[in-house]
Design a protein around this nucleic acid. Structure first.
Length: 216
DNA sequence: CACATGATCGCCT
DNA sequence: GGCGATCATGTGG
């Protein structure tokens, strides 16, 4: 099991079940501009129900995938297969897929039904800042929260087992780079669609990907 | 730190 | 049949 990722969620991620003052995003938010959603989700909380308990983590890194005109997106050129189908759902659903035969990646679907765009959740950090490793990277984030493709297609706004709550306060200082792992995507591989909290220690990828590369 | 490699299998051509 | 929206490990500078 030397290579197995933690399948038992880190108890340090435990949060009080749904603090009542927390606010979920309205449907209209997820139907909006995908890049804006990707930026807005920095600092937001993802909550995962495990039985009677909820695990929570603060999102610190996202990527936007822009649908039919984005060669890096699974929905490029309108591809519509069983796997990708959740991307075509209304904003606010979850799209989860398996990569490299072993890692899951979780996405928040954006735009109205029929427009297949999404925001990949790449990293998060625990409430006490102790989970910089277990939640850093899309595969580890899913492993830590127990998210698998069985969760693909669920609605984040129906009180189900995965929910997202609004950040308190202003957005974090945000770094921008091209997306990771999409070298095959032609010109789209250069698009500045990866966003991260520059003050977080849980950012995934090599050090050069932890600096702001945006053309100012 | 940079880079290379193997693991492992669902999905698409 | 080939490859991937990744990760862990190993090598070398």
């Amino acid at each position: 099991m030397k290579r197995a990722l933690a399948s038992i969620p880190d108890t340090r991620l435990l949060i009080d079940p749904r603090p009542p003052e927390w606010t979920e995003y309205p449907r209209a938010f997820f139907r909006g501009n995908t890049i804006e959603v990707a930026r807005e989700l920095l600092g937001a909380w993802i909550a995962r129900r495990q039985g009677d308990l909820w695990l929570g983590a603060r999102i610190v890194e996202t990527e936007a995938y822009l649908g039919r005109d984005d060669a890096a997106a699974h929905s490029w050129r309108g591809r519509r297969t069983a796997r990708v189908e959740p991307m075509y759902q209304d904003g606010g659903h979850l799209y989860v897929f398996l990569v490299y035969g072993m890692h899951h990646c979780a996405n928040v679907v954006t735009r109205p039904e029929g427009i297949a765009e999404a925001v990949l959740l790449r990293a998060a950090e625990g409430p006490h800042g102790l989970s910089a490793t277990t939640l850093s990277g899309p595969g580890r984030l899913c492993a830590a929260l127990g998210i698998t493709k069985a969760d693909s297609g669920i609605d984040l706004l129906s009180g189900g087992s995965v929910r997202i709550f609004q950040r308190f306060g202003a957005p974090p200082k945000t770094g921008v780079t091209p997306r990771i792992g999409v070298d095959y995507a032609g010109a789209a591989k250069h698009w500045p669609l990866r966003f991260f909290d520059m003050d977080s220690s849980a950012i995934s990828g090599p050090p050069r990907m932890k600096r702001n590369l945006a053309v100012q």
